[in-house]
Write a protein that binds this DNA or RNA. Structure first.
Lengths: 234, 234
DNA sequence: CGCCTTTTCGTCAACACGACGATTACTGCC
DNA sequence: GGCAGTAATCGTCGTGTTGACGAAAAGGCG
């Protein structure tokens, strides 16, 4: 802070996106395969540098989301995860990346060649496996994202952000089961969730999934916190 | 990401510190009075730009902590709070600031003129009052910091980070009461805390505070999460 | 020694939770 | 149509946790 010959160091600021979704019975994350060095050909989080020095961080996150995954910010929950800025995290130059976490309902399988430039969905278990290579420090970021998601399900209503606009109690329970990797009793889960005022709003409709009794349909309610919390077993 | 005439925009990266402590019966925050424009003379969070393009974010936070408040990183809990980067948050130029949150035991009143350059301790209620002017978007940051602190007390053992190395159950309870702004039943609090294995380790000693039965002294234990959580009333 | 204060231990009812039985409302098959 | 199979929903019961509060323990002080 002494202003001798010192000038304010300038660094490149990027935003990265950890878009989580529940797909095909597993917690999956949206990744891209890098087309340019460094880490060319490797898996990485979608993201990029600020478009200009005037671009807002949140706006950059929303822009990258659309550009790289084809998703709109109105479809999903988006929040800041954390900022990663180790000096050597990018071999080219100093980059500080602000990472955002998104919860998305199940996606219509963005097949390669679509609008999104080669965004792929992979199960987080597979990505976090020690044999899978991931660019930069993105494996650590993904690990933080998953842990944040698991934790948020405990004391917020964000589990419903993984569900489509209308969903059944079983849809929601499976979100919890898949994200936490545990199995939950359907009866106790039903009682617990319906006991939280404002979490779910029944639409009055019922839907029949293959076999069994038709389930009631719900929409997300106004509540954001889960009180009392639903703690996972440890 | 199209590499026409576009070059990666460079921005100045700063770290700010929200150092919270419980002092004089109130939750207080460490602030400095700005000596230079912009917002000269106004209250602001301690912080500053990266010392060089090679400096790690966490290291910069630790450095600023020592420089501006005289505190060492070993004395307190330090974690990332969030990153604030609205384009117009600094009138001079684009600045993205990574804010860190610190919980400190009660401080020996860093009187002006000491080592720390004019660090002052102010109750957060006063600072967040709409009549108090605070530089940049720091009021919003302080508000986020306080909310994070309140929330962390619910499901982690970080309340003890506000206490000195050895403390009584009442010391800890008062931390909760002051941070949450509620009053808690001493008997139920005692039962709850002693029921969490690993939160507190009794030293075996007792200490007499003025009047009343002497209280047992405790040290912080290994536990970091509070399970089950202690939820505040809403 | 009594009185005040604070800490600590106990009690009790209300509530929340895990385990699980029973009922309801469908689909599919014979 | 009747019956088996399945999933959703409602209930019950024992246990553990919480909030409200009584009571005892252990000090200071006059």
């Amino acid at each position: 802070m002494t202003d001798d010959a010192w000038t304010i160091p300038e660094v490149a600021v990027a935003v990265d996106l950890a878009v989580l979704t529940v797909h095909d019975g597993a917690l999956q994350i949206m990744l891209v395969r890098r087309g340019i060095p460094p880490f060319e050909g490797m898996l990485a989080l979608p993201g990029g540098f600020l478009a200009s020095t005037a671009e807002d961080l949140d706006a950059a996150a929303a822009r990258e989301l659309t550009e790289e995954t084809g998703l709109g910010t109105e479809d999903l929950h988006l929040e800041q995860l954390g900022t990663y800025g180790a000096p050597d995290r990018d071999p080219r130059r100093r980059v500080v990346t602000v990472c955002y976490l998104a919860f998305s309902p199940d996606l219509p399988t963005p097949t390669a060649g679509g609008d999104a430039r080669e965004a792929i969905l992979l199960p987080v278990d597979e990505v976090l496996d020690h044999r899978t290579a991931v660019a930069f420090d993105h494996k650590k970021i993904i690990s933080d994202a998953v842990e944040r998601a698991r934790s948020k399900l405990e004391y917020t209503t964000l589990g419903a952000a993984f569900c489509p606009p209308e969903f059944t109690m079983t849809d929601l329970r499976q979100v919890y089961e898949i994200v936490w990797g545990t199995s939950l009793d359907p009866r106790n889960f039903h009682r617990k969730i319906t006991g939280v005022t404002g979490f779910l709003v029944p639409t009055g409709e019922r839907v029949s999934r293959q076999v069994g009794r038709p389930a009631a349909l719900y929409r997300r309610g106004d509540a954001t916190v889960l009180h009392p919390a639903m703690l996972r077993n440890r």
